[in-house]
Design a protein around this nucleic acid. Structure first.
Lengths: 235, 235
DNA sequence: GCAAATATAATAGCATTACTATCAACCTTA
DNA sequence: TAAGGTTGATAGTAATGCTATTATATTTGC
């Protein structure tokens, strides 16, 4: 199955190189995909946030990193918060694409669901379709920082403005696959959101709080959540 | 069972009024429980963080709120981050106490586990044992802000210094109760940590992202996690 | 009841942050 | 070649996250 997944990934990557991951345009002032500087902002923001953490990250420091001016970065994003929202949206849109592609031709609902869970919970492998984006580091940022994008006093307004649609849409797809296996299951949405956030959390724990997780180099969060899901919905 | 739980709570509260919730002393410079000002700092930090959010919260604003000086607050806590770590430790120690007390005399492992899950996942009711602490608001803060206490570049050092032992100890108790029901279950630690963080997350979703949760006024996160746990570990 | 010790308040100061504004330079492309 | 848009440089501002110093209360121990 791993081999199958990998060859799938190969086909998908060649497809993706002609595609643009679509992020809601309210998030940015100017589309960073539309210019060289914009791409450098995305590329180096990922490197810098991974290096010093989102809390210490500033546009001034990013400016130094890309040999550009702070004020130029402000022309793309209103604030570092919006940049984080952009990065998380991009990430989930990319995961969503992989999820849809990987499960598209799978008939058996259970097999389909398990593949989808794998896509959202597995450790990320480098994808070279988007040369300026380091997906491995972006995944680390999602694990360490993404919850800060919605744990704010402005969530409800930003949610109304569509900042989190990609994330919610991806979770709804997962919920639907759960319901395809068992349409009587009462908690499909909660299970889907628990799988996604829970997997990020288990990845965090295996790096920092090893005593309260079973996940490590041998047991992956993916394994745990596949077992959990199957037991929860099939009886 | 609800009645039984409530009478238990009554006995527990009278007990608690003679007890002090113990928080690791590395977290503070001066024990806020040791003075009137210290207690005012805790009391009003809960009110103010709930009101304006942790990101906008500053010691200067808190000083205004309690009619005291910024520099006086700095004598109790090095930073607002440490104050958050203090509040979360206090909260989990309080939950841990309720968990131990509520399950103490319960013989049947499954019943014991279900009661423990209820304690960690249910919406909090006001507890008047600690007059300066509003547990309902503190619970809201835990839902909205607690992950910021460990999602930092300093986690590993702070973890070594024991900042998170209360939290980890509470999760280990829950893991042990899972193992008492089924000692062969392979993911007891991951399940315990998923229940605790997952419940906070579901509480957040039912307030802000209702489309990706099944939880609402009729279905509680507690119900979901009890069902999930039983299906996961019994077969 | 008074002195000593301790806690708190007031003020100032400082580097950094998170921006905004202005203007100049440059680079396209019609 | 003029016009429009993009980027860079510089400056400025209010707020943040502290530290330091000194003065004033308050508690306590004798």
């Amino acid at each position: 199955m791993l081999l199958y997944l990998q060859s799938n990934l190969f086909i998908m990557k060649s497809l993706l190189s002609n595609l643009k991951i679509s992020v809601p345009d309210k998030i940015y002032l100017k589309d960073p995909e539309s210019s060289k500087l914009g791409k450098r902002i995305i590329e180096h923001s990922i490197l810098l946030i991974d290096k010093i953490g989102f809390d210490s990250f500033t546009f001034k420091k990013l400016g130094v990193e890309i040999g550009s001016n702070e004020s130029s970065i402000y022309r793309y994003f209103e604030s570092k918060h919006k940049l984080l929202v952009y990065l998380t949206s991009w990430y989930w849109a990319w995961i969503e694409y992989q999820m849809v592609f990987t499960t598209f031709n799978v008939q058996e609902p259970k097999e389909k669901l398990l593949k989808a869970i794998e896509v959202v919970t597995e450790t990320i492998e480098q994808d070279d379709s988007f040369s300026h984006i380091n997906e491995v580091l972006l995944n680390k940022i999602i694990i360490d920082e993404s919850s800060k994008s919605y744990l704010t006093k402005e969530v409800d307004n930003e949610n109304k403005d569509g900042y989190f649609i990609v994330y919610k849409r991806m979770i709804k797809r997962l919920r639907n696959m759960i319901l395809e296996v068992n349409s009587d299951y009462k908690f499909a949405s909660s299970l889907a959101s628990t799988i996604v956030e829970g997997a990020l959390h288990q990845h965090f724990l295996k790096e920092h709080f090893t005593s309260i997780t079973d996940c490590n180099d041998n047991i992956s969060p993916s394994e745990f959540f596949k077992d959990l899901t199957i037991n929860a919905i099939t009886n």
